[in-house]
Every structure is written in C-alpha cells, then in structure tokens.
C-alpha cells in the first residue's frame, strides 16, 4: 500500500501532463474547423514541452545559472531542447495559419467537411 502511494505521488505530475497532451491531440484529430485544429496542435506541443521541463526538475534545485550559494541546479539540457522546440512550434503555427487564410480565400470556408464537399463536387 505504501509503495502504491509512493508511486502515485512520484508520477501524478506526468499523468496530468499526459491528460493535457491528449486534450490537444483530441482537438487536432476530432475537430473539422482548421483554426481549431491548429490550436489543438499548439496545445499538444506545449503540453509536450511541460513533459520535458518536468523531467528536468530536481527536488530542491534552482535555475541552472551558476551562482554563489546555489548547490543543486535543475538539468539545463531539456530546457535547451524545448527552447528549440518552441521556435519550431511557432514556425509550424505561422505556416499553418497562413495556409488557413489562403484556404479561406479560395474556398470561402475553413470547415474541413465543407471543403471536402466542394472538392468532391469539382
């Protein structure tokens, strides 16, 4: 019983992050609105960032900026990776939204089902 409690306390952070990730993932694949899809993608990616940053944390640590007095620093490498990933996510979002604007201009709608109907008719 003690072990189970210990396991839950050590892992529930990750479980919440997984729920966040899946909320975003669901929004991407279930919603026909293109803007909503891209927002879902954004939430999915941002939540993956939280996963990475959570694994970098050391109990009682501080930010990895070397200073007098601090002895334990959290792991800097995941921070670096996620800085890169945030920029990648911005690049993807910008490109996706630019496509959405062009699609709206060409189809008059940003609903995937409606676009599909128009493509079938053509």
């Amino acid at each position: 019983m003690h072990d189970v409690m210990h396991g839950v306390l050590g892992l529930y952070n990750y479980w919440i992050v997984i729920i966040l990730m899946m909320t975003g993932f669901y929004t991407v694949i279930a919603r026909p609105n293109l803007v909503k899809k891209i927002i879902g993608l954004f939430i999915f990616q941002t939540s993956v960032f939280i996963l990475f940053i959570s694994m970098a944390k050391i109990e009682g640590g501080t930010a990895p900026i070397i200073s007098e007095g601090a002895r334990i620093y959290s792991n800097p490498l995941p921070h670096v990776l996620i800085l890169t990933a945030i920029v990648v996510s911005l690049a993807t979002t910008a490109l996706a939204l630019a496509l959405v604007i062009r699609i709206r201009e060409a189809y008059g709608t940003i609903n995937e089902d409606d676009i599909h109907v128009q493509d079938e008719e053509a």
Binding site: F42, T46, F49, I53, S54, A56, K57, I58, G61, T62, A63, P64, I65, Y73, S74, P78, H79, I82, L83, I86, V87, S89, L90
Partner: peptide, 15 residues
C-alpha cells in the same frame, strides 16, 4: 516554478 526561466521567457513571448 520548474526552474526553466529561459524557457518561461520564451514561452511567454512566443506562445
């Protein structure tokens, strides 16, 4: 809170 101050600044500015 998770000690990733650089990431926090970037997320706030970009996200």
């Amino acid at each position: 809170v998770l000690d990733a101050v650089d990431v926090a600044l970037t997320e706030a500015a970009i996200g």
